[in-house]
């Protein structure tokens, strides 16, 4: 379905207070948000919990969402805030992250050794969060820099430089695999 058409349908459902908007919200944003949250939090379980919180929060603020100029940017802003809140709580509680938890998977179409996936995940995990989220959105969700800048509320040049620095670091970290 065309993105604009889906957003218009979602806006109409939100404005008329139709609970079917929840399904539309899921179809529009769940996949992208889940990927984004995994990139930010480096944990699938945390991403699942935060995704639920994000959806509940969106539903509670549904009338503001209906009037928002950019629906997707608004949704990403909520997701980012919730992820930051969880990260702060974790920091305060001094919770140790389970580094072995996998949030990258092997492609079914082109099976690769799981060792490779682990190396990629470890390299991505070592990037600073702002660089990691840009790279994940660009590489795995095939977003353009303009799209990412609009969604994250950043200048396009900042997004491009984060991508460039992140890729340089990854090149250093994965040097043996690139050749």
């Amino acid at each position: 379905m065309d993105k604009n058409l889906a957003e218009n349908e979602l806006r109409a459902a939100l404005a008329s207070d139709d609970p079917a908007a929840v399904e539309l919200l899921w179809n529009c944003y769940a996949s992208d948000l889940f990927a984004f949250l995994q990139a930010v939090l480096r944990s699938r379980h945390d991403a699942e919990d935060v995704l639920q919180t994000v959806f509940v929060r969106i539903v509670r603020k549904r009338h503001r969402l209906a009037g928002a100029r950019c629906l997707d940017a608004y949704v990403y802003r909520i997701a980012r805030n919730e992820a930051s809140r969880l990260a702060r709580c974790r920091k305060k509680e001094q919770t140790v992250r389970v580094e072995s938890e996998s949030w990258l998977m092997v492609r079914q179409s082109r099976p690769e050794p799981s060792d490779l996936v682990e190396q990629l995940q470890a390299a991505l995990a070592r990037l600073p969060q702002p660089q990691r989220e840009v790279i994940v959105m660009k590489v795995y969700k095939e977003r353009t820099f303009l799209d990412i800048s609009r969604l994250l509320g950043l200048p396009a040049n900042t997004v491009a430089s984060r991508y460039r620095y992140g890729m340089e670091k990854l090149r250093t970290l994965l040097g043996n695999l690139i050749s």
Binding site: A30, R44, W103, M105, L120, L170, I178
Partner: peptide, 11 residues
């Protein structure tokens, strides 16, 4: 291309 050998899980 190397990064795309892995993928992020869908919900």
């Amino acid at each position: 291309e190397l990064l795309r050998k892995a993928r992020l899980p869908e919900p």
